[in-house]
């Protein structure tokens, strides 16, 4: 069956059409990243998670964080549970690892600002 998938890789948001029975039958992409994204959406969708954790001793009470790569979409809410339970202390550098190998994905949660 033909599936229509909005690519989220860049702000352009191409509408990629892909056949879920034949992943090589793909059209509507503006660049090769769109092909890869559409295939992943059918096989194992992944997302980057961005949120905040508690921080003590900084200008603000929250430290922004993100996963430094994509994690499986079905793990997003599990990941949020861990993020909510995390508390750090200043100083923190942008890029510093906050949670290593989150949920065994091989992906780290990192700080996205100095604090």
């Amino acid at each position: 069956m033909k599936r229509e998938i909005t690519c989220i890789v860049c702000p352009k948001g191409c509408l990629v059409t892909i056949d879920d029975a034949n992943l090589e039958d793909v059209s509507g992409f503006g660049c090769p990243k769109g092909i890869e994204y559409a295939k992943n959406e059918l096989l194992h969708p992944v997302r980057t998670v961005t949120s905040t954790v508690k921080i003590e001793g900084a200008l603000h009470d929250r430290l922004p964080v993100r996963t430094n790569g994509d994690i499986p979409k079905e793990l997003i809410f599990e990941c949020m549970k861990l993020i909510r339970a995390t508390k750090v202390s200043a100083p923190v550098r942008c890029g510093q690892v906050i949670i290593e190998d989150i949920l065994g994905t091989g992906i780290d949660l990192i700080a996205t600002r100095n604090a």
Binding site: C10, T48, T50, P64, R66, C94, T112, R113
Partner: peptide, 24 residues
């Protein structure tokens, strides 16, 4: 600083950054 989601910087830095990272 409050736009903690990613998607910034693809044109200028050629990579996906969050708002605070772009500012930093």
């Amino acid at each position: 600083n409050q736009c903690i989601h990613n998607g910034f910087g693809l044109h200028y830095f050629k990579e996906q950054l969050t708002g605070p990272e772009y500012a930093q």
